[in-house]
Structures are given as structure tokens and as C-alpha cells.
């Protein structure tokens, strides 16, 4: 699972509606895999990303390449887009857990595939 996907996910257990994002990583195994750069897509996602959550998640994973705030000229800042690309599209979580900061539900990631299914009593 790529970090861009993590940035779009929140806990969705029944009744868990506040403080349910971002999910906290634990025991993760990361992998870096090159991908073709697509500026159009990065620009499309700039307004959709929750940037603060992305930065804080990255710092906890030991990735400190992103500036603390998004540059004002982000859409046409090649250097920034390059870093963003590497972080959100080339960084994969191969295995680990995502834990809801609110209800503590554990979502497991195995073979790079997150299991976001809810348990019977959570729907």
C-alpha cells in the first residue's frame, strides 16, 4: 500500500466519527519502488491530500524529506513535486498495522494489501 492511499483512509467502525484520522502505523515494513512521475496527477491530488497528516505520518516512519508546510507554489515547484512523488507514490507499506487513534481498531496490512473489513459487531 502506498502512502497516498493511507492519506485517503480513515477508521469507519460504527460510531467512530471523530479523531479517526490518520491511522497510526505500527510494525511496518517499507519498500521503495520506482514509478514514472506524473505531474498532472500530483497536481490533481494537492488539494485532496491532508498534508499535515502526511508529514506527521512520514516523520513517524523516519521519512523527513517533506517540508513542514506545503510550498505556496507547490503545483509548479519541480523539486517539491519530485519529493512528493517519491514519498506518496514510490513508498510502499509491505506489511504492518494501522491503528485507529480513537477506537483502537487494528487494520492489518499483508503482502501490501490492507484489510479494511470491519468485524461483525462494528458494522
Amino acid at each position: 500500500m502506498r502512502l497516498i492511499t493511507h492519506n485517503m483512509l480513515q477508521c469507519h467502525v460504527k460510531g467512530c466519527n471523530a479523531n479517526n484520522f490518520p491511522l497510526e502505523f505500527q510494525e511496518v515494513e517499507l519498500e521503495q519502488e520506482e514509478a514514472e512521475m506524473n505531474e498532472d496527477f500530483l497536481r490533481n491530488m494537492l488539494t485532496k491530500l491532508e498534508y499535515d497528516a502526511l508529514v506527521s505520518t512520514c516523520l513517524k516512519l523516519g521519512i523527513n524529506d517533506l517540508p513542514a508546510t506545503m510550498p505556496a507554489d507547490a503545483a509548479y515547484n519541480d523539486e517539491f513535486l519530485q519529493i512528493l512523488h517519491r514519498v506518496i507514490l514510490e513508498t510502499h507499506v509491505k506489511s504492518g498495522k494501522m491503528i485507529c487513534p480513537n477506537c483502537k481498531h487494528i487494520y492489518n496490512i499483508r503482502d501490501g494489501i490492507p484489510n479494511m473489513l470491519l468485524a461483525e459487531h462494528e458494522v
Binding site: 502506498r2 492511499t5 492519506n7 480513515q10 477508521c11 484520522f21 514514472e36 490492507p114 484489510n115 479494511m116
Partner: peptide
């Protein structure tokens, strides 16, 4: 591989996508 971002396991009736304005 560079364009297919991810495949996740969940029920679309209980989708974990963060609500984004717009």
C-alpha cells in the same frame, strides 16, 4: 505498476475513504 495504486479489502457499503470536500 506505477499507475495501479492499490487494491484494498473492504465492503463498499462500509467504505473507509476519508470524506473530501468536492
Amino acid at each position: 505498476k506505477g499507475r495501479v495504486l492499490d487494491a484494498l479489502v473492504f465492503d463498499v457499503c462500509h467504505a473507509p475513504w476519508r470524506r473530501i470536500n468536492g
